[in-house]
């Protein structure tokens, strides 16, 4: 009985680990897609960290939270950061190629153009600053 429970526990653990790995794999793939499509936005290399911000005109949290947060970041970092804003309604193909599922979505790329972070949903100033520092 107890060995059967142990076996089932092991199976459950294995299934959970597989699920977590699958989730991480999907996130990783999203970053790879971003990285593959990034050169179309800035050429060979952006030379400085970059935020690619996907939004839509009717996105309320974009206007009330994400836009002010990005403005604050821009003020803090000035010319040390590039920022590209993309209207997902105007450029649905681009949003699809980057794997964007909701707005706002922000991608953070390092100065060599490698996609390092993706934030699905609102990313506040402290979180973005933390990610930018880690680039």
């Amino acid at each position: 009985m107890s060995s059967e429970i142990l076996l089932r526990f092991g199976l459950a653990l294995g299934i959970i680990v597989l699920g977590v790995l699958a989730y991480r794999f999907i996130n990783r793939r999203m970053l790879i897609r971003a990285q593959n499509n990034a050169p179309s936005l800035f050429g060979k290399s952006p030379d400085k960290p970059m935020i690619v911000y996907f939004t839509t005109p009717d996105c309320i949290p974009c206007k009330t939270i994400q836009r002010p947060a990005l403005d604050q970041i821009r003020t803090l970092l000035g010319g040390n950061l590039r920022m590209i804003e993309i209207d997902a309604y105007e450029q649905p193909d681009l949003a699809q190629r980057w794997g964007v599922m909701s707005v706002p979505t922000t991608f953070l790329l390092d100065s060599r153009g490698r996609a390092r972070y993706v934030n699905n949903g609102v990313a506040r100033v402290d979180k973005l600053m933390e990610q930018l520092k880690a680039l």
């Binding site: 839509t56 009717d58 996105c59 309320i60 949903g121």
Partner: peptide, 14 residues
């Protein structure tokens, strides 16, 4: 602004 099925981001009062 929400992809079908994703959790909305608009909180109460915002």
């Amino acid at each position: 602004g929400t992809f079908p099925g994703m959790k909305p981001k608009v909180r109460e009062g915002v």
